[in-house]
Amino acid sequence: MPPEVLSAPLIVEFPFTRSTGPVLGAFLTGLRERVVLGARGSDGRVLCPPAEYDPVTAEELTELVPLGQLGTVTTWAWNERPRPYQPLDTPFAWVLVRLDGADTALLHALDAPRHAVRTGMRVAIRWADERSGAITDIACFEPAPNAGAPGDSHRAEGSAA
């Protein structure tokens, strides 16, 4: 009889260090200082996360604007079983959040009960206690303290739900 086939854990890890460039470097610096920056495009739209090049003209973008600490969920997906290294270790929603002052949405995690999560929901940034200039400086989003206030949820499609 052949021996039982072996198996063992195998972990492959590449400790990549990347240079961040002017726009993402400024964006990450902002996060470290609790300020979220967007980039203004040639058509006047504010993009967050900021793009390095204009989506319309492909020119370099150099005008960065601070955005609000509140935003609106534009879509979401529920994550019932978080995996290691995800932002939260309890069930949470992956959300696209359009921060006040921005015209595009940022992907992050929302710490809220499943029944409370909806498109058009108002959410607030929960900052990490220790920040180093990384997207994880935003620990996650959480329901805005005055949830239910008008805000700008009229701009979210499907907000009637």
Partner: peptide, 30 residues
């Protein structure tokens, strides 16, 4: 990044982030 930050009052003069280390990690049972 420093030049872009100079135009934002609350961030002017802070030390800019220039690099970020993001490990790519894959866990297998081989």
């Amino acid at each position: 990044a420093a030049e872009l930050l100079a135009g934002i009052p609350e961030l002017a003069g802070v030390e800019p982030v220039t690099r970020v280390t993001i490990p790519a990690r894959l866990e297998y049972t081989y």
